[in-house]
Amino acid sequence: MAGSNPNAKPMNLTLNVWRQPNRDAQGQIVEYKVKDISPDMSFLEMLDVLNEDLLHQGQDPVAFDHDCREGICGSCDLFINGRSHGPEKGTTTCQLHMRKFSDGDTITIEPWRAHAFPVNKDLSVDRSAFDRIIQAGGYVNVNTGGAPDGNEIPIPKDIADRAFEAATCIGCGACVAACKNASAMLFVSAKVSQLALLPQGQVERKTRVENMVAQMDIEGFGACTNIGSCAAECPVGISLENIAMLNREFLAAKATSNNLA
């Protein structure tokens, strides 16, 4: 049964898991024990084991979001031992492996905490606020068809690369969860930077940043105080440079746009 390392010893762990039946209910930490956890398991596979155990005992399994389990869809979102996506840098929860823990460890698992991310159930939160921010302007206004040839506008490689790096945000919300202020600035800045860097994004550059920041505030995210935990916990390494760029874009737009509202 053991995988890559035949000598790896199975572990027994204590889990402190946040349980909350629904959005309006009171939640609490509940302690569970899991046994014979292989170090080669992913963190979510460990939770699968717990859930199968719970189901067999006739108890409600722990609800959590996940899907691709290869670190790209942005669904998984656990606050593990006081860290977004757990202790390993640059890693989503689904790519975190149990070999990062030791036999006998106690692991506390909580949902993302933010006023703008209400809990659906247990560890699953509602991140639709992110979608509404994108809907406020995180796009280029082009209809299907009628686009000029892809090579019509050359884009310097370093600009294209920087735009790509900003565009790799997976929208998981680890930044908000880690931030002391539950600020969504890293998320917003990644999209604003991507489109502000590219020629295609220039036409709506000013209105985009104005509208996205306004929506971000409406959703009730906090203000950035440049602590940097967001970038430190971002599983795909979105840089703080993007937040500076967002600030710059915002200031320039507010100072020069014709928008009086």
Partner: peptide, 14 residues
């Protein structure tokens, strides 16, 4: 490809 470029998809470039 044209459509995606117009949307701001950051394809690799030379």
């Amino acid at each position: 490809i044209d459509q995606c470029v117009a949307q701001g998809v950051p394809f690799a470039r030379e």
